[in-house]
Amino acid sequence: MTQELIIDINTANRSGETAEIMRRYNDVFQRHDPSALDDLVAQDCVIENTTPAPDGARRAGKAACVELWSAIATAPGTRFDLEETFVAGDRATIRWRYWMADGNSLRGVNLMRVADGRIVEAMGYVKG
Results as ranks from 00 to 15, higher is better:
Met1Tyr: 15
Glu4His: 14
Leu5Glu: 07
Leu5Met: 11
Ile6Tyr: 12
Asn10Met: 04
Arg14Asp: 13
Gly16Ala: 11
Thr18Val: 04
Ala19Val: 08
Glu20Ile: 08
Glu20Lys: 12
Met22Lys: 05
Arg23Cys: 12
Asp27Gln: 10
Asp27Trp: 14
Phe29Met: 04
Gln30Tyr: 05
Arg31Met: 10
His32Arg: 06
His32Ile: 05
Pro34Ser: 10
Ser35Cys: 11
Ala36Val: 05
Ala36Phe: 07
Asp39Gly: 14
Val41Gly: 04
Asp44Glu: 08
Cys45Pro: 04
Ile47His: 00
Glu48Arg: 11
Thr50Val: 07
Ala53Glu: 12
Pro54Ile: 07
Asp55Met: 12
Gly56Tyr: 01
Ala57Ser: 13
Ala60Leu: 08
Ala60Thr: 12
Gly61Thr: 03
Lys62Asn: 09
Leu68Pro: 00
Trp69Asn: 07
Trp69Met: 15
Trp69Asp: 08
Ser70Pro: 04
Ala71Asn: 09
Ala71Gly: 15
Ile72Gln: 09
Thr74Val: 03
Pro76Gln: 00
Glu83Trp: 10
Ala88Thr: 09
Asp90Ala: 07
Ala92His: 02
Ala92Asp: 01
Thr93Asp: 02
Thr93Val: 05
Ile94Gly: 03
Trp96Leu: 02
Asp102Lys: 08
Gly103Asp: 03
Asn104Lys: 13
Ser105Arg: 04
Leu106Tyr: 10
Leu106His: 13
Val109Pro: 00
Leu111Trp: 05
Met112Ser: 09
Arg113Phe: 08
Val114His: 11
Ala115Met: 13
Asp116Pro: 09
Ile119Pro: 03
Ala122Glu: 06
Lys127Tyr: 14
